[in-house]
Structure formats: C-alpha cells, structure tokens
C-alpha cells in the first residue's frame, strides 16, 4: 500500500479519481440539492485547515509536541485543492440561499464563490510555503506560519459567515466566525493527538511526575480548548437567550424545539465539552492513549454533528450522498497522512 502511494503521481491520480467520484455524486439526481456536499466541504475544511493551523500555531510558540506530528499534519495540504474543487461543484446550489433572489454588494453569487475559493487556494499556497520553510528548517518558518494563520482565520471566518450563516439570512451572530476557527484549531489538536498515538505509540511510562510527553501536552491543549469552546458557546447562547429578540432566537429555537435536532444539539454539548472535559481532568488520563483517542474522536464527531445541526434545518441533505462524500474524503485523508508518516520527525 505504502509503496503504491509512494509512486510518483499516485496521489494526484487518487485526487482526480476522488474528484470525479464526488462530482458524479453531486451531479446525480440522488444528491438532491447539494446540502450533503456543503456539509462534507465544511467539515473537512475545518479539519484540514485546522490540522495545518495547529502545526503553524505550535511552530510559532515553539511548542515541543508539534515536532512529533508536524510532518503528518502538514501532509494534508493537497486536500485543500480538492476542497476548492468541491466549492466549484457547489455553484448551482448557491441559488438556494435565501438571498439569491435579491443579491446585494456582499451576498452575490460570483463574489460569494470567488472570495471563498480565493481563500481556500490562498490557504493551499501559504500552507505549502510554510511546509517548505519547515522542511528547510529556515528562519522564515515563523513568518510563514503567521501568514498561514492569517489566511486560516479569514478563510474560516468567511466559511462561517458565508456558507453557513447566510443560509439563515438575515440572522447573524458576530461570534460565528471566531467560533468556527477556534473549533478548527480544536479539531486540529484532536487529529494531532490521534496521529501522535498512531505514529509514536504509547508514551513511555515513567514514575517521574514532572515528565511530559508530546501526547500529554496535546491533551492539555485539548482540555483547555474544551473549556474555551464551552465559553464561546455559552457567550453566544447566553446573549441570544437573554436578548430574546424574535429574529435572533429563531436560529436556536429551530434547532432545539424539534426532534431530532434537539437531541443532536444536546449531544454536541456532550461530545465537545461534557465528555472531553471530565475525561481529561486527571493527569494520568492525559497520557493514556485509549482515553485520548476516545476524546479526540468525540471532538471530531461533535464538530461534524454540530455542522449538521447548523445546516440541516435550512437545507436538504441526502444521507447516501453524504456518506459517500465523507467516506471518500476520509479515505483520502488517511492516504495522504499515511504516505508522509513514518519519516523522521520534523523538529520544532
């Protein structure tokens, strides 16, 4: 498998096949109106950009843990190109946005697709430049990490405001963009933890209470981000709940008053906070590979379910098409990471 992947151009072939498959699914009558594709794009966009952002943030603060998984985290870059292609497939779907009937200066089809596409491609370019600097271990790597992070923040903010929030136009929440890029980083740390376990195995057991492994460092970050996530969620929820303005609460009401969204919304809280927080509370759990893997999977699925809850009341999703899209992208994700893994770890 690995030998096959390492053959020159095999990855490109794989990407093209995947693109063709996804395009076929999106065009086929089975996909309905493209909601599934949007969900796949949003979720994997979050994860892929989040992985690179986690590596970039770690590089900027000279974190020790980042060296052990940096190569794997940076290997997901080609997927950004595929995601840009998926955005193009969404063009017909944009007509179903509520503002499509009366476009304005900001919300108009060409600019809408154009700016999101531009930032996805820009993310690809800046991530590539960052990866090159890391490979060369040059002085410029912090500068390039910072550049990527700028693009990342803008790209995730745009994804939040354009792709998701404008589905519910004129509903708006100023925190939505920030919420998205913090979640992307959270997802990036979750992936880092899984990669750290897969690549390096269980951390050596020591009696020394002060010994810190890469895994426990990543766990500390996930623990902190679970609190941060809860804080941001609460800040958003409380303001809307307390204000109780009809045009604002409708967004929450739609998602908490009918089944199955109500149950899913509650499960998001559990997957992203009420499970990770207590699970990672003790020092020993932070370096236990089983606990950390479970928590990471909980975080990733929590983000997926949350994206679903954001979209589902507003668009139609086809479960079959969704499954194909998600699995296809998951397969590619595993392939690109697997291809790069096992090399010498890049030092921070």
């Amino acid at each position: 498998m690995k030998a096959l992947l390492e053959k020159k151009g095999s990855l490109a072939v794989l990407l093209v096949i995947a693109a063709a498959l996804l395009a076929f699914v999106a065009m086929s009558p089975l996909a309905g109106r493209g909601g599934s594709l949007l969900l796949a794009l949003l979720f994997w966009g979050t994860v892929v950009e989040g992985c690179i952002a986690a590596a970039a943030a770690g590089t900027m603060v000279n974190a020790r843990w980042v060296g052990s998984v940096k190569r794997e985290l940076l290997s997901v870059r080609p997927l950004l190109l595929l995601l840009a292609f998926l955005l193009l497939l969404l063009i017909p779907f944009v007509d179903s946005y509520p503002w499509a009937g009366g476009p304005g200066l900001w919300l108009r089809k060409d600019f809408f697709i154009g700016r999101n596409l531009a930032f996805l491609l820009l993310a690809y370019v800046t991530a590539g430049r960052f990866a090159a600097a890391v490979e060369a271990n040059g002085e410029t790597k912090t500068v390039r990490a910072a550049t990527y992070l700028f693009v990342f923040v803008t790209s995730q903010t745009l994804a939040a405001f354009d792709l998701v929030m404008s589905l519910e136009y004129p509903w708006y929440s100023t925190l939505f963009g920030g919420f998205f890029f913090i979640e992307a980083l959270y997802a990036g740390f979750a992936v880092s933890a899984i990669l750290c376990i897969l690549v390096h195995g269980r951390p050596p057991r020591t009696d020394d209470p002060d010994a810190r492994s890469s895994l426990s460092d990543i766990s500390v970050l996930m623990f902190g981000f679970s609190l941060l996530w809860a804080g941001l969620f609460f800040a958003q929820y409380l303001t809307i709940w307390y204000g109780n303005i009809p045009e604002e609460v409708s967004f929450i009401a739609k998602r908490t008053s009918v089944s199955p969204f109500r149950e899913l919304a509650v499960s998001v809280l559990f997957l992203l906070f009420f499970l990770p927080f207590p699970a990672l509370l003790s020092t020993r759990a932070k370096s236990n590979p089983y606990v950390v893997t479970a928590v990471s999977l909980s975080i990733l699925s929590g983000i997926l379910v949350e994206r679903y809850v954001f979209l589902a009341p507003a668009v139609r999703l086809n479960p079959g098409a969704l499954a194909v899209d998600l699995i296809c992208l998951l397969f590619l994700f595993v392939c690109v990471v697997y291809k790069e893994s096992g090399g010498t770890p890049l030092d921070a």
Partner: peptide, 27 residues
C-alpha cells in the same frame, strides 16, 4: 480571567442596545 471580563461585557451585551447586544462581546 476569561470569565470575569466576559461578565463585564455582558453588562452591555445583555441589553438590546445596538452596538452592545452582540455575541462577540465576551471574547
């Protein structure tokens, strides 16, 4: 730390005044 200034921001954000009532206020 994060909670204290969030609470201070909510003195404003809990009202319905334009420019105050906005979700980004806490962070």
């Amino acid at each position: 730390v994060a909670s204290v200034h969030s609470v201070v921001s909510w003195d404003f954000a809990m009202s319905l005044l334009p420019g105050w009532h906005t979700t980004i206020f806490a962070p």
